[in-house]
Amino acid sequence: MAKHPDIELDTTAVFKSIIQMLDSLPDENTCRQHLEKLRWNGQPICPKCGSQRDNHYKLKQKGEFKGLYKCKDCRERFTVRVGTIFESSHIPLRKWFTAIYLFAAHKKGISSLQLHRDLNVTQKTAWFMLSRIRHSFANNVEFEFDEITQLDETYVGGKNKNRSKKKKVSNTQGRSLKTKVPVFGMLSGGLVYVKVVKNTRSKVLTPIIEAKIKKGTVVVTDGWNAYKRLNKSYIHHVIKHNEGIYKMGAYHTNGIEGFWSLLKRGTTGIYHAVSPKHLQRYCDEYAYRYNTRHMKDGERFNLSLVNSDERIKYKDLIASN
C-alpha cells in the first residue's frame, strides 16, 4: 500500500465516520501510531516485564522503523500488537481497524459474510476476526449494582413452528431446554450484565445476583419462582405480568426486556443462527454496545482498541466444550 508521509496523524482524534478514519489512517504505519498513542500514551510498555519508557530501543528493519522495540530492562523485543487481538496476525491493522469500526458502530453487528466482502478476505478469516473482536468485548469490567436493578431471563433459540418438518422437536415450544438456551440479565443505571446459564432455577440465579448486586438494593422482577426468596437480602418488587400488570409506579422490567428484544432481533436478523457454544460471546457483544450506546462511534472505536487485550486462538475457538 502506498505511504502518505505528508499526512500528519492526529492520534488523539475521535473519528466522526469510517471514511474519516480510513483517510486519517491510510497505511500500516499511521494505524500503528494511533494504536500506540491509545494504548501507551507515548511511552512504549514492555508486555513481558511491564517496563514503561519513552526511550526503549527502536529497532529498524532495512533502515526503516516499523514499530519494533527492544526493552531496555529485560531485553525482550515487542511491538504494540503483542498481547492484543492483533498479535500473530498477518492481517494489516487497517483491515482490523475497519472491522472493529464496523462491528462497534453497527447497532446489530455485522455478519462474517458481509465482512468478508467488505474487507476482501475469506469468510473463514472474517469469522475468526469477528470472533476475536467479540471475545475482547467480553463484559469483564467488575462493577456492582447498587441502584434499582431489573432482573429477567429469556430463552434463545428458534421457534419449533418455524422449523422444517425434519427438524421439528416435539414438546419444545416455549421454554424447553431441548432446543433453547436460557440467558439471565440484570440492568441498572443504564448498564446491563448478561450471563448464559444452564437453567433459571433459584440455585443457579441467586449466586449470580448476590455477586453483582449490593445487598439491600431494590430489585424488580416478574413473578418467576426463582426470585421468590430475594426479599431476604433485597427490597423486592414483583411485577405480575400474568395479571396484565407491567408497571407499578417507578418499578418495571421494561428496560431489560427491551435489551432482550435488541439481542434477539440482532441474532436473528444479522447472524441468523448462534450455537450455544458461542452464545455468551454474542451476549457480551450486545451488552458492550448497549453499555456504550451514549458514546459516539469514534469514541467506541478508540475504546475498543484500548480494550483489545483478550486474544483467543483459533484452536481454542473451535475446540469442543
Rank of each mutant, 00 (worst) to 15 (best):
Ser136Met: 02
Arg132Lys: 15
Asp118Ser: 11
Leu102Pro: 00
Ala104Val: 01
Met129Leu: 06
Val141Gly: 11
Leu119Lys: 06
Glu142Ala: 15
Asn120Glu: 10
Arg117Ser: 14
Lys107Pro: 03
Trp96Ala: 09
Ala105Gly: 07
Gly109Leu: 06
Gln114Lys: 13
Asn139Leu: 15
Ala105Cys: 01
Lys95Pro: 07
Leu119Ile: 04
Ala105Met: 00
Ile110Ser: 00
Ser112Glu: 00
Ala104Gln: 04
Asn139Ala: 14
His135Ser: 13
Ala126Asp: 04
Glu144Ala: 01
Trp127Gln: 02
Ser111Thr: 01
Phe128Ser: 05
Val121Met: 00
Lys107Ser: 10
Trp127Glu: 04
Asn140Gln: 09
Leu113His: 14
Arg117Glu: 15
Ala99Leu: 11
Leu113Ala: 14
Arg132Ile: 10
Val121Thr: 03
Val121Leu: 01
His106Phe: 09
Phe143Val: 00
Ile133Asn: 08
Thr98Phe: 13
Ile133Asp: 08
His106Lys: 12
Phe137Thr: 14
Ile100Leu: 07
Lys108Arg: 12
Met129Glu: 00
Leu130Asn: 03
Glu144Asn: 12
Ile133Cys: 11
Ser112Pro: 00
Arg117Asp: 14
Arg117Met: 14
Ile110Gly: 00
Asp118Tyr: 11
Met129Asn: 00
Lys107Phe: 02
Asn120Trp: 07
Thr98Trp: 11
Lys108Ser: 11
Gln123Cys: 02
Tyr101Ala: 04
Arg132Leu: 03
Lys124Met: 11
Ala105Trp: 00
Ala138Phe: 04
Leu113Ser: 13
Glu144Cys: 12
Arg132Asn: 10
Val121Phe: 06
Asn139Lys: 12
Arg134Val: 04
Leu130His: 04
Ile110Arg: 07
His106Trp: 01
Thr122Ala: 00
Asn140Cys: 09
Thr98Gly: 10
Asp118Arg: 11
Asn139Glu: 15
Met129Lys: 02
Val141Cys: 12
Ser112Thr: 04
Glu142Trp: 13
Phe97Gly: 07
Gln123Arg: 06
Thr125Met: 05
Ala138Thr: 10
Glu142Gln: 15
Leu119Gly: 04
Ala105Ile: 01
Val141Glu: 15
Lys107Asn: 08
Asn120Gly: 06
Arg132Glu: 09
Ser136Tyr: 06
Val121Asp: 05
His116Lys: 14
Ser136Phe: 09
Leu113Pro: 02
His116Arg: 13
Lys124Asn: 11
Phe143His: 08
Trp127Lys: 08
Ser131Gln: 15
Asn139Val: 14
Gln114Glu: 09
Trp96Gly: 00
Trp127Thr: 05
Val121Gly: 03
His106Gln: 13
His116Trp: 09
Phe137Ala: 15
Lys108Met: 04
Ser131Ile: 03
Trp127Leu: 01
Gln114Phe: 07
Thr98Asp: 11
Ser136Leu: 00
Thr98Arg: 09
His106Glu: 10
His116Met: 14
Thr122Tyr: 10
Phe97Ser: 06
Phe103His: 09
Ile110Pro: 07
Lys95Gly: 09
Gly109Cys: 05
Tyr101Gly: 04
His135Tyr: 15
Ala138Pro: 10
Asn140Ser: 10
His106Gly: 10
Ser136Gly: 08
Leu119Phe: 03
Thr98Ala: 12
Ile100Pro: 01
Trp127Pro: 00
Thr98Lys: 08
Ile133His: 01
Arg134Gln: 05
His116Glu: 14
Asn139Gln: 14
Ile100Tyr: 05
Gln123Trp: 05
Trp127Ile: 02
Thr122Ile: 01
Ile110Gln: 05
Val141Lys: 13
